[in-house]
Structures are given as C-alpha cells and as structure tokens.
C-alpha cells in the first residue's frame, strides 16, 4: 500500500518533468506533506514559505499573476483554518489560479492529536465561493487528479492525505472534476463515501452482500461542484443513502448530499463520520475503531437504514 503523501510527492515529480507551469509552496512541512522529494528533485521550483501559512496563501496569489500556477501545500488544519481568510480574500474572491493541496485530514492524522486533525476543512472550503473541492480516494486517483486540476483554471482545494490507502481503482483512471464514480452497483442502499472512507465503504458493501443487502458504492471525490445527477440517480434507484467521511458529520460530505436530496429527491439517509467532537491521539486504525469510522460501522448504518426503508414500505 502506498501512502497518500508519497503518491502526492511522486505525482509532483512526474508532472514537473512534463510541464513547467507550476511551482510548489511549502510551510516547513515538506516531510509531512510528501513534497520533500519534489524539493530535492526541483529545488528551483520549490518555494520555502516557512511556518507562516497566512503569508504563504497571499504570496501564492501574487505569484499566480506572474506566469506560474502555485501549488500551496500544508496541513489541512492550517490551510482551512489558520489561513482560510487569506484563501478567501487573496485567492477565491479575486479568482486567482492557485491550488491548495492539504495533507493531514481527519482522524487519519493519528498520534498528533486533535490540534492537527482537520475535521472541518470540507465544510469550510465548500462554503467559499469560487473554490472547487476535491478529495481523492486512493493514490491512483490522486495522481490522476493532479494534472486535471492544473489544467483547470481557478482556485482548487485538494485533500491529499497522509496514510497508506489500498489501491482501489488499479492504476489507469480518468479523473473528471464534478463527477462521482460508481465503484460497485447495488439496489438496496447507496453508500457515498469520500477519501479514506471509500475503501471502507467497499468493505462494508461486501459485508452486507453476505447478509443479502445489495449496496451501490459511490466515490464522491469532487465535493464541489457536487455531482447532483448521480446523487439523485442513487436516491431513485436505491431509495436510501448513507454517507461516509473521515470528517465532522456537520457540513461535510453528509451535509452536501443532504442538501441535494432535500431539494431534489428526499429519501432516508444516515451520515457516518466524526460526531461533532474532537477526538484524541492514537493510531489511525485505533481511532477509526473508537470513533466509528470502520467498515463495520458503515455496515451497522446500512442495516439500520435498510430496516427503516423496509418499515416505510
């Protein structure tokens, strides 16, 4: 299994060999975000901004007017909260072509604890006009997304991640902004997942298959603009939806899907995610167990919602 940060670093190097229109900005966390390999390979395209994320965001905006696409890299907490007002006023409002790539997301951060676990970043960035919000599910999808977001003109917030994630899509993959992907078809319930929860959703679907409940699994790697058509299609075809995210259940993927359903095709729904609390230090898997982000937890939600759906019938 490849870590998301290694995949990110490799992706930058592969892209840099092919195209010369981007630079990488770092806030003294190159080891953490995976950009250290890029720094060593392309030092002149690596801009050290020090532990000063607010300045870094606005510097990126200025750089974007001079012939390069800046990729701002830092931890999710600092990108989405420490420097979010700079992301809004320096980048989003003037519509500069800056990409923000954030690592260290959710409980996947692990031992560093709640100060460094970004559990609000989806909710925050999707509330800012002009931002596109992307969260790839595996190393392959991250690598496929990078050239696409560089070709896209405008502000992008992309969640890279940190830990090892199983290869879901098996290498060759076409990434399209604004399109969710059906990973497996099913008829009883749809599980829509994002980021590290996608492979857990697939496992949950396998568990349910053994119990005779058929789950459609969707990878919703673009959270904004959201793939409304796929959500409505899933609601029509399966009649119930579960969302799964390593993020607060308020305002993130679950909130996004709920908004679409309520206005277009309301069906029973449950959100699996961090239940509006700060967690703690621990190994990512131990935290996922304790805070109910495991395949078993998604499966529990499926059983409950399936029962609810049957009762309503």
């Amino acid at each position: 299994m490849k870590t998301m940060r290694d995949a990110f670093g490799e992706s930058l190097i592969e892209l840099a060999a092919k195209r010369d229109d981007f630079v990488v900005l770092d806030a003294d966390v190159a080891g953490g975000t995976g950009t250290n390999v890029f720094r060593d390979a392309f030092p002149e395209r690596f801009i050290q901004c020090a532990i000063a994320e607010q300045n870094m965001m606005s510097v990126a905006a200025g750089l974007s007017t001079t012939g390069v696409i800046p990729i701002v890299t830092c931890y999710g907490v600092f990108a989405s909260m420490r420097a979010v007002e700079q992301a809004r006023n320096s980048i989003a409002y003037p519509q500069f072509n800056v990409k923000i790539a954030a690592s260290h997301l959710g409980l996947d951060v692990g031992p560093d604890g709640p100060t460094h676990q970004a559990i609000e970043d989806i909710a925050i960035f999707r509330a800012i006009p002009n931002f596109t919000v992307i969260s790839p599910a595996d190393p392959g999808e991250l690598k496929a997304a990078m050239p696409v977001i560089l070709d896209y003109r405008g502000p992008v917030y992309i969640r890279t991640g940190r830990s090892p994630v199983p290869d879901i899509f098996g290498g060759s993959l076409k990434f399209e902004i604004g399109k969710g992907r059906i990973i497996q078809e099913g008829t009883d319930i749809t599980i829509i997942a994002v980021g590290v929860m996608v492979h857990r959703a697939i496992q949950a679907a396998q568990i349910m298959e053994g119990e005779g409940i058929s789950c459609r699994v969707v990878n919703m790697s673009t959270i904004k603009p959201i793939d409304k058509d796929l959500i409505v299609d899933s609601a029509i075809k399966t009649g119930a939806i579960i969302t799964a995210e390593d993020h607060n259940i308020l305002g993130g993927l679950g909130g996004t899907i709920a908004e679409v359903l309520v206005e277009n095709y309301p069906v029973p729904m449950l959100r699996v995610g961090i239940k509006d609390i700060f967690a703690e230090s621990g190994e990512p898997l131990d935290l996922a167990r304790k805070y109910h982000l495991m395949p078993m937890d998604i499966a529990d939600a499926v059983r409950y919602l399936h029962k609810l759906k049957e009762m309503k019938r």
Binding site: I47, Q54, N55, M56, M57, S58, V59, A60, A61, G62, L63, S64, T65, T66, G67, V68, P70, Q86, N89, S90
Partner: peptide, 13 residues
C-alpha cells in the same frame, strides 16, 4: 496584511 504578502508573491514571480 494580505496586499503586502500578495506584493511579495508578485515580486518573487
């Protein structure tokens, strides 16, 4: 504060 940082980015570019 942001215009100053923006200027630094322009100057670096």
């Amino acid at each position: 504060g942001q215009g100053f940082s923006f200027s630094l980015g322009c100057a670096l570019g």
